[in-house]
Design a binder for these strands. Structure first.
Ligand SMILES: [Mn+2]
Ligand SMILES: [Mn+2]
Ligand SMILES: [Zn+2]
Ligand SMILES: [Zn+2]
Lengths: 138, 138
DNA sequence: CAAATAAACAGTAATTATTACTGTTCAATA
DNA sequence: TATTGAACAGTAATAATTACTGTTTATTTG
């Protein structure tokens, strides 16, 4: 469905420079499915550019995410955070400052919940992140 | 709404032993709002039990989470993961093995989306984690 | 085209978050 | 009261990430 755009176009659109390392990194990542980690990506890129540095991989992944070329699975993947609100609720996550605010279910509107989903996944609960820009960051 | 249950009852229900450190740790955590990190919790507990070890705090937070006494904000907070699926989609997250599977929006049923929420939060997108037990782990 | 300039890079050191290990304390039990 | 196992404090080790430094590369300018 989504047509594959050449890397140089993507870079132009997002205002970042094209380099050989970035091009290969991006293409290698496109060839991986699921949700790879920087280390896994590094291992693959190294096969194409053996001299590449892990730091360069991290730096460019970060650049891609910052500039919007690609996205990360969770905006709050750093250190562990404990949930002190026992009520059933969800979160407003600011994509700029990464702040996390509680929002209760009723403010979101009812979610259509199912106990059982395809391929036999047994549902315990839904956790919704509403991602956007908080009042302060606007 | 949720009535405050004494700590010893909670421990009994979840099959873990009561100790002085655990009791104080739990009560201190209850007194914090939002989504504190282990380090922040450690700093506070240290005021009540100056001799407590950071390792003990980590170990008992882990125990609380494992036994279900409390929960963490994100099940996948460890290392960064990159999203290689450009389609709009959501995730099935297994609370046992922490695996993350893509699920497309249509399988979930329509979410009632709003562009603007209370306190001026500007919505970019919704990200839903359906948390439960995957087929393999059942 | 050659020198100057700045961005990007590789390699490595440092930092942060977390877990593992070790010897000691403590509380329940025989 | 002696035994014993769980929990603890203190510290070492590991994993993930970021910072730093000197070198290479591409671009711009004279
Ligand atoms: Mn919350
Ligand atoms: Mn995904
Ligand atoms: Zn913000
Ligand atoms: Zn599983």
């Amino acid at each position: 469905m989504t047509l594959i755009k050449p890397f140089r176009e993507l870079c132009a659109e997002h205002g970042i420079a094209v380099t050989h390392q970035r091009q290969v990194l991006y293409e290698v990542m496109q060839g991986m499915d699921g949700h790879p980690s920087p280390e896994e990506i590094y291992a693959r890129v190294k096969r194409k550019i053996p001299s590449i540095s892990l730091a360069t991989v991290y730096k460019n992944i970060h650049l891609f995410v910052e500039s919007g070329v690609l996205r990360e699975v969770s905006l709050h993947h750093g250190s562990q955070r404990l949930e002190m609100n026992a009520e059933e609720h969800h979160h407003l996550v600011c994509s700029k400052c990464k702040s996390i605010e509680d929002i209760d279910e009723s403010s979101l509107g009812a979610l259509p919940k199912r106990r059982k989903l395809a391929d036999g996944f047994l549902v315990e609960r839904y956790s919704v992140d509403v991602i956007g820009i908080c009042a302060k960051c606007q």
